[in-house]
Design a binder for these strands. Structure first.
Lengths: 335, 335
DNA sequence: AAGCGACGAGAAAACGTTTTCAGGAGTGCG
DNA sequence: CGCACTCCTGAAAACGTTTTCTCGTCGCTT
């Protein structure tokens, strides 16, 4: 910048003004500066700028999700990126792998880089450590799951409602023995979906057979086996509710390998590529991950724009996509 | 930091030394400083640090891909993140949507944020604009496709080889009329795959029927229709090579909707979730997107670590996964 | 006992910007 | 013709760090 000033024969202040499109600079000087910028290939240093600037904004935000490679989260990430882009805000992203300490490290690292905001799909059970960042002016929004021990904006899917819809749908098809294949039960979304599952069964006057409620230990890795085991048991369910995308994939794989795809009804949570191509088509409760991301980003920027009201919660309703697997009837009882 | 210094009764220099784990500070002072840090909730400002620091490294890199939500790129992104994480380096990510000016804006924005390196799956046809960044010390690595008009490290899949493998596989199953469903032909990967396709046909003594070579205009949006059209034509192919993940998904959908899934053989490029569950299982030429990402990050960090040799190119071989659809025989000719 | 080296700590400059403040040149008015 | 404005511009301080340089203290050697 010094060189630019020298070449254009003006002061640093003037160069700064031109770079920031301050209209109060004479046009001939401005164009001289612009020429110098072009001639020297000068590039503005955004971090130094943020350091001094009054608002101190870095025009960047951080995104922490479980796994950036999971299609659900990458679509969410894209939703965030789209609204951030409109404002010229860049996006850091990191995967917590569902490990609280990793999540915390990421938040710390993002904070040290001076992000203006943080959007996180939380893994930890205590997010009070974020209070410090918030005090420093960092806007905080939770997505997919609410934060705990901190009052902050959040964007959620109606998990319990979606699960209830799935159950209602299966019951309507005639099922009464419905299996639940869930994620680690300490996860908010998993717990909510289980709650919706149980509540709806109760509402229908059906009991919950605890042998039909299973949780995977390590997410998906053992969903295949758990499914096989349940279906090969002595009193197998006639229908299955698989409560997360990766779990659904492995469960469906297991069902197909057992050749039961036309006799066991399935409704999964989260939509999946090729779900409409498998036979029968896979019925799902579809979330709108990009919509979750966009909504979260909007809440975030509202805060950065000065909104200072009480924290807000946006809940998006998932949609049932009936494609065949969820409409299979139960086997006719032996006479 | 000033407050910390005041509370601990030491100078700024000492606080800085403690924060950076300089062993040359007396342990009693060090712990006094650490106490003060904890008491005040002090957080290190990484950007100010980078500004002054000798090496000027921001410990962050930028990733530019076509679409961060495409499972292929999000897996690639994750591969990058994994090796960056080991070094405490954070990752910016952005989607170019295959638009050169958008790619350039992102590169500019990352550069202004002072990234240490840039990994890009290029969209533009001229990347000489990156020379300026490189001159400023930014390491540059291309992934999935090479850059043009700039000599830089690159990590690629053997696209032509993979396509040739697909063709060879279909020919081995007895096919001689093989359709090609490709991406926008100006894309490097699309062109390479088409080249491999044609070369292998030629090698087998089979001609290329140009009516069987189609390109989608807008990626996937019209793959469904293009597929239907080709298969319903007067002289349809008996096998199809679909040359990209999103195209494969739509093509398979079209084939299933036409009820031809057991009569038209298919090999796709890129693996897909549920590919082994559809009937017949979808045979693919699988890339290793996470591996591409890891390799790219390794090349990048090698540069940052001072490697100054000529630019390197890493080529990963894709793997054929035979699952059924690629092994279907051609229809028996009418007697 | 003087001198020397090693060690550790502080003062101050520097990184690349923005912003406040003051002042100079022009303009319009009394 | 002088005064009060308005406009622009430049000098310098500031942002939160790191780093160089200097200096004091201590322990050891001669």
């Amino acid at each position: 910048m010094k060189e630019v000033a020298a070449l254009a024969g003006v002061s640093l202040s003037t160069v700064s003004r031109v770079v920031n499109n301050d209209p109060a600079v004479r046009s001939d000087l401005a164009s001289r500066v612009r020429d110098a910028v072009a001639a020297l290939g000068y590039r503005h240093n955004a971090t130094a700028s943020a350091l001094r600037r009054a608002d101190g904004l870095s025009e960047s935000i951080g995104v922490i999700v479980e796994d950036i490679a999971n299609p659900f989260f990458s679509a969410l990430h894209r939703g965030i990126e789209d609204v951030a882009r409109e404002r010229g805000v860049l996006t850091f992203a990191g995967s917590s792998d569902e490990r609280p300490e990793r999540e915390r490290q990421l938040a710390e690292a993002f904070g040290a880089r001076g992000v203006d905001g943080l959007i996180l799909a939380p893994a930890a059970t205590d997010h009070s450590f974020l209070l410090r960042d918030r005090a420093a002016g960092v806007a905080i929004v939770f997505v997919d799951r609410p934060g705990r021990f901190i009052d902050a904006d959040a964007v959620l899917t109606d998990n319990a409602g979606g699960a209830a819809t799935a159950v209602a749908h299966l019951v309507a098809a005639g099922h009464s023995r419905i299996g639940f294949l869930g994620d680690r039960p300490d996860l908010y979304t998993a717990a909510e979906r289980l709650r919706g599952f149980k509540d709806e069964l109760a509402r229908r006057g059906l009991g919950v057979d605890s042998s039909l409620v299973r949780h995977t230990l390590t997410r998906a890795a053992d969903a295949y086996e758990t499914t096989s085991e349940m279906l090969l048991g002595s009193e197998p369910p006639s229908a299955l509710f698989t409560s997360q995308n990766l779990i659904t994939i492995d469960a469906v794989r297991a069902i197909h390998d057992l050749g039961l795809q036309h006799s066991v009804a399935v409704v999964g949570f989260d939509d999946i590529a090729l779900a409409d191509v498998v036979a029968p088509g896979l019925s799902v409760i579809a979330q709108d991950p990009a919509g979750l991301g966009r909504a979260a980003a909007q809440l975030l920027f509202a805060r950065l724009d000065g909104f200072d009201g009480p924290s807000r919660e946006v809940v998006l309703a998932p949609r049932l996509l009936a494609r065949g697997s969820g409409e299979l009837p139960p086997p006719v009882p032996r006479p």
